[in-house]
Design a binder for these strands. Sequence first.
DNA 1: ATCGTTGTAATCTTCTTTGATACATCCATA
DNA 2: TATGGATGTATCAAAGAAGATTACAACGAT
Lengths: 144, 144
Amino acid sequence: MQISSRFTIAVHMIICIEAFKDTHKVTSEFIASSVNVNPVVIRRLLQQLKKAGIVEVKRGSGGADIARPLDEITLLDVYNAVESVDNGVLFHFHENPNQLCPVGRNIHAIMDSRLQEIQTAMEAKMRAMTLSEIMEDANRLLEL
Amino acid sequence: MQISSRFTIAVHMIICIEAFKDTHKVTSEFIASSVNVNPVVIRRLLQQLKKAGIVEVKRGSGGADIARPLDEITLLDVYNAVESVDNGVLFHFHENPNQLCPVGRNIHAIMDSRLQEIQTAMEAKMRAMTLSEIMEDANRLLEL
DNA sequence: ATCGTTGTAATCTTCTTTGATACATCCATA
DNA sequence: TATGGATGTATCAAAGAAGATTACAACGAT
Protein backbone atom coordinates (compact mmCIF):
# COMPACT_ATOMS: atom_id res chain seq x y z
CA MET A 1 0.00 0.00 0.00
CA GLN A 2 1.19 3.45 -0.77
CA ILE A 3 0.79 6.91 0.65
CA SER A 4 -1.69 8.65 -1.63
CA SER A 5 -0.68 11.13 -4.28
CA ARG A 6 -2.38 13.90 -2.30
CA PHE A 7 0.92 14.49 -0.58
CA THR A 8 3.04 14.95 -3.70
CA ILE A 9 0.25 16.97 -5.30
CA ALA A 10 0.14 19.27 -2.26
CA VAL A 11 3.87 19.93 -2.46
CA HIS A 12 3.55 20.54 -6.19
CA MET A 13 0.78 23.03 -5.45
CA ILE A 14 2.83 24.97 -2.92
CA ILE A 15 5.76 25.19 -5.33
CA CYS A 16 3.42 26.50 -8.03
CA ILE A 17 1.85 29.09 -5.74
CA GLU A 18 5.27 30.38 -4.75
CA ALA A 19 6.89 30.17 -8.17
CA PHE A 20 4.14 32.01 -10.02
CA LYS A 21 3.01 34.44 -7.32
CA ASP A 22 4.42 37.50 -9.13
CA THR A 23 3.43 36.59 -12.66
CA HIS A 24 0.06 34.87 -12.49
CA LYS A 25 -3.12 34.74 -10.50
CA VAL A 26 -2.69 31.22 -9.18
CA THR A 27 -6.20 29.76 -9.37
CA SER A 28 -7.29 26.17 -8.84
CA GLU A 29 -7.64 25.93 -12.59
CA PHE A 30 -4.08 27.13 -13.11
CA ILE A 31 -2.62 24.70 -10.57
CA ALA A 32 -4.75 21.87 -11.91
CA SER A 33 -3.22 22.40 -15.31
CA SER A 34 0.32 22.09 -13.95
CA VAL A 35 -0.43 19.04 -11.80
CA ASN A 36 -2.72 17.60 -14.47
CA VAL A 37 -5.68 16.68 -12.32
CA ASN A 38 -9.23 17.97 -11.97
CA PRO A 39 -9.53 21.49 -10.49
CA VAL A 40 -11.87 20.18 -7.80
CA VAL A 41 -9.09 17.93 -6.51
CA ILE A 42 -6.95 21.05 -6.17
CA ARG A 43 -9.68 23.00 -4.41
CA ARG A 44 -10.22 20.21 -1.91
CA LEU A 45 -6.51 20.11 -1.15
CA LEU A 46 -6.41 23.90 -0.92
CA GLN A 47 -9.06 23.68 1.78
CA GLN A 48 -7.01 21.16 3.74
CA LEU A 49 -3.86 23.27 3.39
CA LYS A 50 -5.86 26.33 4.46
CA LYS A 51 -7.14 24.59 7.59
CA ALA A 52 -3.54 23.80 8.43
CA GLY A 53 -2.60 27.46 8.06
CA ILE A 54 -0.30 26.77 5.12
CA VAL A 55 -2.08 28.69 2.37
CA GLU A 56 -4.64 31.43 1.99
CA VAL A 57 -7.33 31.25 -0.66
CA LYS A 58 -9.26 34.24 -1.93
CA ARG A 59 -12.91 33.75 -2.74
CA GLY A 60 -14.51 35.84 -5.42
CA SER A 61 -11.42 37.34 -6.98
CA GLY A 62 -9.64 34.00 -6.75
CA GLY A 63 -6.08 32.88 -6.27
CA ALA A 64 -3.99 31.20 -3.57
CA ASP A 65 -1.05 32.46 -1.51
CA ILE A 66 1.37 30.98 0.99
CA ALA A 67 0.20 31.85 4.50
CA ARG A 68 3.47 31.73 6.45
CA PRO A 69 7.22 31.79 5.81
CA LEU A 70 8.41 28.82 3.79
CA ASP A 71 11.05 27.96 6.36
CA GLU A 72 8.22 27.45 8.84
CA ILE A 73 6.48 24.89 6.65
CA THR A 74 7.90 21.37 6.83
CA LEU A 75 7.04 18.38 4.69
CA LEU A 76 5.48 16.88 7.79
CA ASP A 77 3.12 19.86 8.05
CA VAL A 78 2.02 19.26 4.47
CA TYR A 79 1.77 15.52 5.00
CA ASN A 80 -0.38 15.87 8.10
CA ALA A 81 -2.55 18.47 6.43
CA VAL A 82 -3.60 16.31 3.51
CA GLU A 83 -2.92 12.73 4.53
CA SER A 84 -4.72 12.65 7.85
CA VAL A 85 -6.30 9.23 8.18
CA ASP A 86 -7.09 7.42 11.42
CA ASN A 87 -5.48 9.97 13.70
CA GLY A 88 -2.27 9.87 11.74
CA VAL A 89 -1.54 6.23 12.53
CA LEU A 90 0.61 4.87 9.70
CA PHE A 91 0.17 1.14 10.26
CA HIS A 92 -3.23 -0.44 10.00
CA PHE A 93 -3.56 -3.11 12.69
CA HIS A 94 -5.83 -6.12 12.21
CA GLU A 95 -8.97 -5.35 14.11
CA ASN A 96 -9.88 -8.22 16.40
CA PRO A 97 -7.01 -10.46 17.46
CA ASN A 98 -8.33 -13.40 19.48
CA GLN A 99 -8.21 -12.46 23.17
CA LEU A 100 -8.41 -16.14 24.11
CA CYS A 101 -5.01 -16.75 22.51
CA PRO A 102 -1.96 -15.54 24.45
CA VAL A 103 -0.46 -14.12 21.27
CA GLY A 104 -3.67 -12.43 20.19
CA ARG A 105 -4.05 -11.00 23.68
CA ASN A 106 -0.55 -9.50 23.70
CA ILE A 107 0.15 -8.59 20.09
CA HIS A 108 -0.53 -4.90 20.71
CA ALA A 109 1.70 -4.83 23.78
CA ILE A 110 4.43 -6.42 21.68
CA MET A 111 4.13 -4.30 18.55
CA ASP A 112 2.60 -0.89 19.25
CA SER A 113 5.72 0.85 20.54
CA ARG A 114 7.81 -0.52 17.68
CA LEU A 115 5.35 0.61 15.04
CA GLN A 116 5.25 4.02 16.68
CA GLU A 117 9.03 4.19 16.64
CA ILE A 118 9.11 3.46 12.90
CA GLN A 119 6.49 6.09 12.21
CA THR A 120 8.35 8.59 14.35
CA ALA A 121 11.56 8.01 12.39
CA MET A 122 9.74 8.78 9.18
CA GLU A 123 8.07 11.86 10.63
CA ALA A 124 11.36 13.18 12.01
CA LYS A 125 12.82 13.03 8.51
CA MET A 126 9.84 14.89 7.09
CA ARG A 127 9.99 17.49 9.83
CA ALA A 128 13.62 18.18 8.92
CA MET A 129 12.73 19.18 5.37
CA THR A 130 11.32 22.66 4.88
CA LEU A 131 9.56 24.12 1.91
CA SER A 132 12.17 26.83 1.91
CA GLU A 133 14.94 24.33 1.06
CA ILE A 134 12.72 22.72 -1.52
CA MET A 135 11.98 26.10 -3.09
CA GLU A 136 15.71 26.84 -3.31
CA ASP A 137 16.20 23.67 -5.31
CA ALA A 138 13.15 24.47 -7.38
CA ASN A 139 14.35 27.96 -8.23
CA ARG A 140 17.63 26.54 -9.44
CA LEU A 141 15.76 24.32 -11.88
CA LEU A 142 13.05 26.71 -12.98
CA GLU A 143 14.50 29.35 -15.25
CA LEU A 144 11.36 31.42 -15.46
CA MET B 1 -3.72 6.12 3.53
CA GLN B 2 -2.34 3.41 5.70
CA ILE B 3 -0.01 0.50 5.33
CA SER B 4 -2.25 -2.55 5.12
CA SER B 5 -2.83 -4.92 8.00
CA ARG B 6 -0.97 -7.63 6.08
CA PHE B 7 2.19 -6.43 7.79
CA THR B 8 0.95 -6.65 11.37
CA ILE B 9 -0.80 -9.93 10.56
CA ALA B 10 2.45 -11.35 9.18
CA VAL B 11 4.33 -10.47 12.36
CA HIS B 12 1.52 -11.96 14.43
CA MET B 13 1.81 -15.14 12.36
CA ILE B 14 5.54 -15.47 12.90
CA ILE B 15 5.14 -15.00 16.64
CA CYS B 16 2.45 -17.68 16.66
CA ILE B 17 4.54 -20.13 14.66
CA GLU B 18 7.46 -19.68 17.01
CA ALA B 19 5.48 -19.58 20.25
CA PHE B 20 3.49 -22.74 19.57
CA LYS B 21 6.04 -24.76 17.65
CA ASP B 22 6.55 -27.30 20.45
CA THR B 23 2.97 -27.67 21.58
CA HIS B 24 0.81 -27.46 18.45
CA LYS B 25 0.80 -28.20 14.77
CA VAL B 26 0.59 -24.61 13.58
CA THR B 27 -1.81 -24.77 10.64
CA SER B 28 -3.38 -21.92 8.71
CA GLU B 29 -6.58 -22.66 10.58
CA PHE B 30 -4.80 -22.40 13.94
CA ILE B 31 -3.13 -19.11 13.05
CA ALA B 32 -6.34 -17.75 11.56
CA SER B 33 -8.05 -18.33 14.89
CA SER B 34 -5.43 -16.31 16.77
CA VAL B 35 -5.37 -13.46 14.27
CA ASN B 36 -9.12 -13.70 13.74
CA VAL B 37 -9.21 -13.63 9.97
CA ASN B 38 -10.08 -16.12 7.25
CA PRO B 39 -7.64 -19.05 6.91
CA VAL B 40 -7.18 -18.24 3.23
CA VAL B 41 -5.76 -14.86 4.17
CA ILE B 42 -3.22 -16.68 6.32
CA ARG B 43 -2.36 -19.13 3.55
CA ARG B 44 -1.81 -16.31 1.09
CA LEU B 45 0.51 -14.55 3.51
CA LEU B 46 2.29 -17.85 4.27
CA GLN B 47 3.04 -18.13 0.56
CA GLN B 48 4.51 -14.64 0.49
CA LEU B 49 6.60 -15.31 3.59
CA LYS B 50 7.73 -18.59 2.06
CA LYS B 51 8.85 -16.90 -1.16
CA ALA B 52 10.89 -14.54 1.02
CA GLY B 53 12.55 -17.50 2.75
CA ILE B 54 11.06 -16.57 6.10
CA VAL B 55 8.86 -19.60 6.74
CA GLU B 56 8.47 -23.17 5.54
CA VAL B 57 5.06 -24.67 4.96
CA LYS B 58 4.38 -28.39 4.84
CA ARG B 59 1.82 -29.62 2.34
CA GLY B 60 -0.18 -32.72 3.12
CA SER B 61 0.70 -33.11 6.76
CA GLY B 62 0.34 -29.40 7.31
CA GLY B 63 1.95 -26.83 9.58
CA ALA B 64 4.34 -23.91 9.26
CA ASP B 65 7.86 -23.38 10.62
CA ILE B 66 10.34 -20.55 10.74
CA ALA B 67 12.89 -21.02 7.96
CA ARG B 68 15.90 -19.17 9.33
CA PRO B 69 17.22 -17.87 12.65
CA LEU B 70 15.00 -15.18 14.14
CA ASP B 71 17.91 -12.79 14.51
CA GLU B 72 18.28 -12.93 10.74
CA ILE B 73 14.70 -11.84 10.12
CA THR B 74 14.07 -8.10 10.37
CA LEU B 75 10.79 -6.25 10.32
CA LEU B 76 11.88 -4.88 6.96
CA ASP B 77 12.15 -8.43 5.59
CA VAL B 78 8.60 -9.12 6.71
CA TYR B 79 7.37 -5.78 5.40
CA ASN B 80 8.91 -6.30 1.97
CA ALA B 81 7.64 -9.85 1.82
CA VAL B 82 3.99 -8.98 2.25
CA GLU B 83 3.68 -5.32 1.41
CA SER B 84 5.45 -5.25 -1.94
CA VAL B 85 3.56 -2.84 -4.14
CA ASP B 86 4.99 -0.81 -6.98
CA ASN B 87 8.58 -1.92 -6.53
CA GLY B 88 8.51 -0.96 -2.88
CA VAL B 89 8.00 2.75 -3.56
CA LEU B 90 6.27 4.22 -0.52
CA PHE B 91 4.97 7.47 -1.98
CA HIS B 92 2.52 7.44 -4.83
CA PHE B 93 3.38 10.24 -7.24
CA HIS B 94 0.70 11.89 -9.37
CA GLU B 95 1.02 10.33 -12.78
CA ASN B 96 1.22 13.00 -15.44
CA PRO B 97 2.50 16.39 -14.31
CA ASN B 98 2.26 18.89 -17.16
CA GLN B 99 5.58 18.90 -19.02
CA LEU B 100 4.73 22.28 -20.53
CA CYS B 101 4.82 23.86 -17.06
CA PRO B 102 8.28 24.45 -15.56
CA VAL B 103 7.10 23.13 -12.21
CA GLY B 104 5.41 20.07 -13.73
CA ARG B 105 8.53 19.39 -15.76
CA ASN B 106 10.82 19.50 -12.71
CA ILE B 107 8.70 18.21 -9.85
CA HIS B 108 10.36 14.80 -9.95
CA ALA B 109 13.84 16.29 -9.99
CA ILE B 110 12.85 18.37 -6.98
CA MET B 111 11.13 15.69 -4.92
CA ASP B 112 12.33 12.18 -5.79
CA SER B 113 15.51 12.20 -3.72
CA ARG B 114 13.71 13.66 -0.72
CA LEU B 115 10.94 11.08 -0.85
CA GLN B 116 13.56 8.37 -1.16
CA GLU B 117 15.37 9.74 1.86
CA ILE B 118 12.21 9.61 3.96
CA GLN B 119 11.47 6.07 2.87
CA THR B 120 15.05 5.06 3.61
CA ALA B 121 14.80 6.45 7.14
CA MET B 122 11.73 4.35 7.74
CA GLU B 123 13.32 1.24 6.26
CA ALA B 124 16.47 1.69 8.32
CA LYS B 125 14.36 1.66 11.47
CA MET B 126 12.59 -1.50 10.36
CA ARG B 127 15.86 -3.16 9.44
CA ALA B 128 17.15 -2.51 12.95
CA MET B 129 14.34 -4.50 14.55
CA THR B 130 14.72 -8.28 14.47
CA LEU B 131 12.13 -10.95 15.14
CA SER B 132 14.49 -12.28 17.76
CA GLU B 133 14.13 -9.13 19.90
CA ILE B 134 10.40 -9.16 19.34
CA MET B 135 10.21 -12.79 20.39
CA GLU B 136 12.10 -11.99 23.59
CA ASP B 137 9.48 -9.40 24.46
CA ALA B 138 6.74 -11.80 23.46
CA ASN B 139 8.07 -14.60 25.64
CA ARG B 140 8.12 -12.28 28.60
CA LEU B 141 4.40 -11.60 28.11
CA LEU B 142 3.22 -15.05 27.13
CA GLU B 143 3.18 -17.29 30.16
CA LEU B 144 2.46 -20.47 28.26
C1' DA C 1 -25.26 43.57 -11.88
C1' DT C 2 -21.78 40.76 -13.92
C1' DC C 3 -18.22 37.53 -14.26
C1' DG C 4 -14.71 34.67 -12.81
C1' DT C 5 -13.66 31.99 -8.93
C1' DT C 6 -14.15 29.34 -4.69
C1' DG C 7 -16.55 25.92 -1.60
C1' DT C 8 -18.85 21.81 -1.53
C1' DA C 9 -22.18 18.21 -2.49
C1' DA C 10 -23.24 14.27 -5.26
C1' DT C 11 -22.28 10.63 -8.32
C1' DC C 12 -19.32 7.43 -10.84
C1' DT C 13 -15.41 4.61 -11.89
C1' DT C 14 -11.53 2.20 -10.62
C1' DC C 15 -8.50 -0.07 -7.53
C1' DT C 16 -7.18 -2.45 -3.39
C1' DT C 17 -8.11 -5.06 0.50
C1' DT C 18 -10.29 -8.52 2.78
C1' DG C 19 -13.80 -12.24 3.27
C1' DA C 20 -15.53 -16.43 1.67
C1' DT C 21 -16.32 -20.71 -1.04
C1' DA C 22 -14.65 -24.27 -3.65
C1' DC C 23 -11.72 -27.72 -5.00
C1' DA C 24 -7.56 -29.96 -6.88
C1' DT C 25 -3.26 -31.44 -4.95
C1' DC C 26 -0.41 -33.22 -1.57
C1' DC C 27 1.47 -36.46 2.03
C1' DA C 28 1.67 -39.07 6.39
C1' DT C 29 -0.25 -43.00 8.02
C1' DA C 30 -3.50 -46.40 9.00
C1' DT D 1 -3.06 -47.92 -1.23
C1' DA D 2 -7.00 -45.56 0.27
C1' DT D 3 -8.04 -41.86 3.34
C1' DG D 4 -8.28 -37.64 5.77
C1' DG D 5 -6.51 -33.44 7.11
C1' DA D 6 -3.85 -29.63 5.00
C1' DT D 7 -2.15 -26.67 1.57
C1' DG D 8 -2.21 -23.96 -2.89
C1' DT D 9 -4.90 -21.28 -5.65
C1' DA D 10 -8.77 -19.68 -8.47
C1' DT D 11 -12.86 -17.09 -8.27
C1' DC D 12 -16.27 -14.03 -6.72
C1' DA D 13 -18.31 -10.75 -3.51
C1' DA D 14 -18.22 -6.87 -0.34
C1' DA D 15 -16.44 -2.81 1.39
C1' DG D 16 -13.63 1.20 1.37
C1' DA D 17 -10.62 4.82 -0.65
C1' DA D 18 -9.07 7.66 -4.31
C1' DG D 19 -9.76 10.37 -7.92
C1' DA D 20 -12.70 12.32 -11.98
C1' DT D 21 -16.42 14.87 -13.13
C1' DT D 22 -20.57 17.69 -13.07
C1' DA D 23 -23.24 20.96 -10.90
C1' DC D 24 -24.27 24.93 -8.49
C1' DA D 25 -24.65 28.26 -4.60
C1' DA D 26 -21.85 31.86 -2.55
C1' DC D 27 -18.51 35.31 -2.94
C1' DG D 28 -16.14 39.73 -4.22
C1' DA D 29 -13.74 42.87 -7.36
C1' DT D 30 -14.96 45.77 -10.97
